[in-house]
């Protein structure tokens, strides 16, 4: 059965980078407000080490805000995020940087530095954080480029890459330091089905080959069910349901079902009445809008 509370999710074999109880990341009572709007509402989540964890939900569910909190790019209003044994919300900048050296992030648009070649983008973290000699840096860069099938494109600029190539280059950059944690923000969005499937294979390969804890934020159903060990579905700033792919498929929650079967929201039957209400100002702008 799918869990609505994640505390009993301890049947996963811990990787070598858990915080002692098999979880790489533990989130407790996380609240994020933007002004008067509550974006994340008392979230609790355990992300088991060495597994692929997919966070799904509709646009505006709070997925990206949650990811930004986990990456330390957004300070939560309250709550706790414990990552690899370090409390992120109270960590010093030095501790945050130590954590960040153990994680890689592949952003939705790639976020490659436009003034650098693909190779230079991938080498950047090595150059900044290690004292490796030039030949070692070049070899490591080529290994990572080969891993994502981008070896012939080392000297291209990001503007010369296609969407799929950009995502693969971003993945190579994210893994250059062999991180313990790897984050993907919408890895398949905007890609053709074949490229998306190749990227899914790469993610699976990374998990098997490097025993990484992988967190994927997506709303691509096919991709999520293919790669996930655990899926957490968000709605309205809260987790609706968590569990393995089969648990999620079996979940009878109407919102989960509508998400899985791509069912649109119930259409308004009385269009005239709705228009009249809009004209008369009975429906406030943003009253039913997204929260993200």
């Amino acid at each position: 059965m799918a869990d609505t509370n994640d505390s009993n999710n301890s049947n996963n074999s811990p990787g070598n980078h858990s915080s002692g109880n098999g979880n790489a990341i533990e989130i407790r009572d996380l609240v994020v407000d933007y002004g008067p709007r509550r974006i994340l509402n008392n979230l609790n989540l355990d992300i088991p080490a060495g597994k692929i964890n997919v966070i799904m939900g509709r646009s505006g569910a709070g997925k990206s805000t949650l990811l930004r909190c986990i990456l330390g790019l957004k300070k939560p209003t309250s709550g706790s995020i414990r990552m690899l044994g370090t409390e992120l919300t109270t960590a010093t900048p030095h501790e945050v940087n130590s954590l960040r050296k153990q994680m890689g992030v592949a952003f939705q648009g790639g976020a490659l530095f436009s003034s650098m070649t693909v190779g230079e983008n991938i080498q950047l973290a090595l150059r900044e954080h290690t004292n490796l000699d030039e030949s070692t840096i070049r070899i490591m860069t080529r290994i990572k480029l080969d891993m994502v099938n981008m070896l012939p494109f080392e000297n291209l600029m990001p503007s010369e890459l296609s969407g799929g190539m950009t995502k693969r280059a971003a993945l190579a950059r994210a893994t250059i330091m062999d991180p313990k944690l790897l984050f993907f923000d919408e890895p398949s969005s905007g890609l053709d089905p074949i490229t998306a499937a190749e990227l899914d294979e790469l993610i699976l390969l990374l998990k098997q080959g490097m025993n990484m804890t992988i967190v994927v934020v997506t709303h691509e159903l096919e991709s999520a069910f293919k790669i996930a060990d655990k899926i957490s579905i968000m709605h309205g700033g809260e987790f609706l349901v968590m569990g393995g792919p089969d648990d999620i498929r079996a979940c009878q929650d109407p919102i989960v079902q509508s998400l899985l079967h791509r069912t649109p929201r119930e259409s308004r039957v009385d269009t005239d009445a709705h228009l009249r209400a809009l004209v008369n100002g009975e429906i406030e702008p943003g009253a039913s809008g997204n929260i993200e």
Binding site: L73, S98, R100, M103, F113, A125
Partner: peptide, 17 residues
């Protein structure tokens, strides 16, 4: 500005740079 809106600044922060 462009680096900020295309998440390049965030990417640097996430790389502990």
């Amino acid at each position: 500005g462009i680096m900020r809106i295309t998440e390049q600044v965030d990417a640097l922060e996430c790389m502990a740079i």
